[in-house]
Design a protein around this nucleic acid. Sequence first.
DNA 1: ACAAAACGTTTACAAAAGACAAGAAAGATC
DNA 2: GATCTTTCTTGTCTTTTGTAAACGTTTTGT
Lengths: 192, 192
Amino acid sequence: MTDIFFRYTNRFVKFTEQDKDLLVSALTLTQVPAKTELVSYNQQTDALYFLLTGCIRKYFVKDGEQITTYIMTENGFIGAFDSIVMGIPSEEIIECLEPCTLLVLKKADLDRLYQQVPLMNEFIRKVLEGVLIQFKQTLSLFILDNPEERYIKLLSQNPEILQRVPQHMLATYLGITATSLSRIRKRILEKA
Amino acid sequence: MTDIFFRYTNRFVKFTEQDKDLLVSALTLTQVPAKTELVSYNQQTDALYFLLTGCIRKYFVKDGEQITTYIMTENGFIGAFDSIVMGIPSEEIIECLEPCTLLVLKKADLDRLYQQVPLMNEFIRKVLEGVLIQFKQTLSLFILDNPEERYIKLLSQNPEILQRVPQHMLATYLGITATSLSRIRKRILEKA
DNA sequence: ACAAAACGTTTACAAAAGACAAGAAAGATC
DNA sequence: GATCTTTCTTGTCTTTTGTAAACGTTTTGT
């Protein structure tokens, strides 16, 4: 099961077998049902997750409404980074939208790995580089494109999540209301 | 002049004097006039910059219009990260809005430092963690808040750049037009 | 100091998005 | 399979934003 994880790490650094053993001993495999909250409101987390299968979102509650800020579906790390790094409670909730298979990495174990495995800093650095580029692209999308263009790009780049995530969550993720997304979809259909 | 830089690094890791010597030998101090383009359109860059004094923005050109996506004013790294990391030409232009004092770090030198200075990976990892958290906050701002709220937050969190950056650049940075920002400012003035 | 360019605001109109409410459709639960 | 909940769509109205153009002011360059 950690095969998938090491296929991922391999894109960044080549861990030795010994490194991998240390990593495996720090990772815990978990399966959780849909609607599980990995991080709850105001919770201070001490764990990072690697999503093997399933679908997860992050959301805020603003004026009683849930505003989705992130959706992910495949191999990748997820966690309340600000809470972990800065040691503060998380304002964001991390919720599984489907049954999920996860690897859990506690912050204490990660910190230990930074000491034991020299490649670990390089690995996480490269992961962060990738995440950063992705975030930058998403942010540019908001600055450059209007909601309709954003929806069309999401449609072309990630048609899969449109099937797996309720539309009202996608709407807030695009920075608009569910009503507005429904109308945008109608507009697009009428054009085509 | 590198004092300021090491005051910054010190927030993340404690480089030895030997480390610092290696770093200093890799860094080049430059002063450039306003309007200098550190990275031009479609240019493949091989350098990272640390801004000591001055003000810099990143922008895209879309439909003939300049859309500002990032503004920074003080100690921090800036560069076309995607271009450097992925080795592709940059679609974003990086421009100095004021005369700037910069430290230049070539990618080749950075890669060498990763070999020579073990702390370097940790340092950049921690820098990236910080940058990532900042990006996440900015992105949340776009998803959670409307343009007026975004302007008010910018006003409260970074009143300084309102003085240093033309309004039409701030407008696109907030994801709106200059006309709209002018209206928002008027609305706020009338309320108060 | 002068001319040119850049900047900020305003206006009128069109397009889009939000708020609110009512229904239809789809899914979950038992 | 009937019920209940969630999700999606639609309608009406209001607010906000975009577009385009005009105008005065400020800044810049020489």
